[in-house]
Amino acid sequence: MSQAVFSVARILVVVLFCVSGAQKLMNPGMVAGAISAKGLPYPQVLAYLTIAAELGLGLLIALGFYARAAAVLLAVFTLATIVVFHNFWSMTGDAVRTNQIQAMKNLSIIGGLLMIAAAGPGRFALNRR
């Protein structure tokens, strides 16, 4: 029973990434625009890397295929989004509260990803590393 619950939890942690990555795949230009607006170089390349991170790593974790490594990489990616996109500490007005909430949400997700990295994918996975 607990292995089944663990597998469901592993999938639920990454649903957000899979859905977001699939949506970004439908409009990579929008993603590149958001990246460009932050002053980052190579926005088109970073847009596709973002899609690969969210969708690709999310699916690996959901399937339990190299889930530990994928969870660490997705945690690093998620931390980077806090620093670059949800940097509420350098914002003013309503943006502060909105981005603080997003940053805290991302920290919680990082916690879930690190648990997957530590515990592995569980019994119901394509590989159990």
Score class of each variant (00 low, 15 high):
residue 79 L to K: 01
residue 80 A to T: 09
residue 80 A to R: 00
residue 80 A to C: 13
residue 80 A to H: 06
residue 81 T to V: 07
residue 81 T to H: 04
residue 81 T to N: 01
residue 83 V to R: 07
residue 83 V to T: 09
residue 84 V to I: 15
residue 84 V to T: 11
residue 84 V to D: 01
residue 84 V to N: 03
residue 85 F to G: 08
residue 85 F to A: 10
residue 85 F to I: 03
residue 85 F to N: 12
residue 86 H to S: 06
residue 87 N to A: 15
residue 87 N to D: 15
residue 88 F to K: 08
residue 89 W to V: 03
residue 89 W to K: 12
residue 89 W to I: 03
residue 90 S to M: 15
residue 90 S to D: 15
residue 90 S to Y: 10
residue 90 S to G: 14
residue 91 M to K: 00
residue 92 T to L: 12
residue 92 T to F: 02
residue 94 D to H: 14
residue 95 A to H: 00
residue 96 V to S: 06
residue 97 R to S: 02
residue 97 R to P: 02
residue 98 T to L: 13
residue 98 T to V: 07
residue 98 T to N: 10
residue 98 T to F: 10
residue 100 Q to G: 12
residue 100 Q to D: 07
residue 101 I to G: 10
residue 101 I to V: 14
residue 102 Q to G: 10
residue 102 Q to T: 15
residue 102 Q to K: 13
residue 103 A to I: 04
residue 103 A to P: 07
residue 103 A to C: 04
residue 104 M to I: 14
residue 104 M to D: 06
residue 104 M to K: 03
residue 106 N to D: 11
residue 108 S to C: 08
residue 109 I to N: 02
residue 110 I to N: 02
residue 110 I to Q: 00
residue 111 G to S: 01
residue 112 G to S: 09
residue 112 G to W: 04
residue 112 G to A: 15
residue 112 G to I: 12
residue 113 L to C: 05
residue 113 L to K: 11
